[in-house]
Write a protein that binds this DNA or RNA. Structure first.
Length: 327
DNA sequence: GCCGTTTTCGGCCCGACTGTTTTCAGTCG
């Protein structure tokens, strides 16, 4: 993929983050993120394209085409530079802390002047978060832990390491009473080169014994979240493991959802919306009546959306959906 | 800001969990 595309995509992504942080129209922010992904996946060098050619890239309209042209010519664009002067780069780094998103990162900056993870640690130590609306004792504790995780930073691991973890989780959970089916999903099932976390999907009428089996694993040193539908733990090695449990009837829809990349799923769900349908991990439904249409197999879900089944490894939103739509 | 298998205007994926908020915003995937 051409360097110019990576460069333009990175700047548009940065602009997306800054837009989201500064409030404003959330849909506008999404558009830039979408365009950034399309440009990153675009096979031709954007630096050599005219405006008319740029707008042929899906998700790129006149306005973004002009910004890409400006990036090609100058290395950046005016609106981005303007936001950069408003929000220091360290504030963006704050959002790398787990559980700290754009809105609260900006709040920390605006109200306490905190402009980096290091400054956040100092602010917490000095008790300065106590006065901040929406930040309680638990938040402070969680943020400190998050900063530690950020600093130890082995964020993504190789596929084989994740596969070993998944195998251990599957062994432990499938022994729990009531486990009807279990399989690794997420980037592991897509066979991505590296994975950020381990996703495991299971089917059961009662999820409690399965969730208990996960949190009882000796490797699970921290419980990040624990609910009836989803439980997340962190392993000794710092790898996050998410276990999702659904009723057996939803297996296909759930596997479809928990396998696709975020972007693939958004695309597929948009396709559903355009057909007056609603897709979730629980099935494909009629948007108006809420009536269930299909949910048992992935093939049924894709077929009902007018698509041939897409192999897991391709579910990255890099053109695989258009390639399977009838012309 | 982009886009169209009713649309060139009015939408824009969907659900789970947490913390502090007593009804929901923020975050995540």
């Amino acid at each position: 993929m051409p360097d110019a595309n990576d460069c333009a995509a990175a700047l548009l992504d940065e602009y997306t983050e800054l837009l989201v942080m500064s409030g404003g129209d959330p849909f506008r922010g999404r558009v830039y993120g979408k365009a950034a992904r399309a440009i990153a996946a675009y096979p031709h060098d954007v630096a050599g394209l005219s405006a008319a050619e740029l707008v042929r890239i899906p998700g790129v309209g006149k306005s973004i085409a002009a910004k890409v042209a400006e990036i090609t010519a100058t290395g950046s664009f005016a609106e981005l530079e303007e936001l950069r002067t408003d929000i220091p780069d360290g504030v963006r780094r704050l959002t790398r802390i787990p559980a700290l998103g754009p809105r609260r990162a900006l709040q920390l900056y605006r109200e306490l002047g905190v402009a980096s993870p290091e400054q956040l640690r100092e602010a917490i130590a000095a008790g300065r978060l106590n006065s901040l609306k929406g930040f309680g004792a638990k938040s402070a504790e969680k943020l400190l832990r998050g900063i530690e995780l950020l600093e130890s930073a082995g964020s993504r691991v190789l596929l084989n390491v994740a596969a070993q973890t998944a195998a251990a989780v599957i062994d432990a959970v499938k022994a729990a009473p009531g486990c009807l089916r279990i399989e690794a999903a997420g980037s592991l099932r897509r066979a991505a080169e590296s994975v950020g976390d381990v996703d495991v999907l299971a089917a059961a009428a009662d999820s409690a014994p399965l969730m208990a089996a996960l949190t009882a694993m000796p490797e699970a040193v921290e419980v990040i979240a624990a609910g009836p539908a989803k439980t997340s733990v962190r392993t000794r090695a710092g790898l996050q493991v998410d276990l999702r449990v659904v009723p057996l009837d939803c297996w296909g829809a759930a596997l479809q959802y928990f396998t696709g990349s975020q972007q693939h799923n958004v695309r597929i769900r948009e396709l559903a919306v355009r057909r007056k349908l609603k897709l979730s991990e629980y099935g494909l439904f009629d948007a108006e009546t809420g009536e269930l249409i299909v949910s048992r197999t992935e093939e049924e879900v894709y077929r009902r959306l007018g698509l041939a089944r897409i192999p897991p490894v391709l579910r990255e939103d890099t053109g695989e959906i258009a390639a399977r739509q009838p012309r």
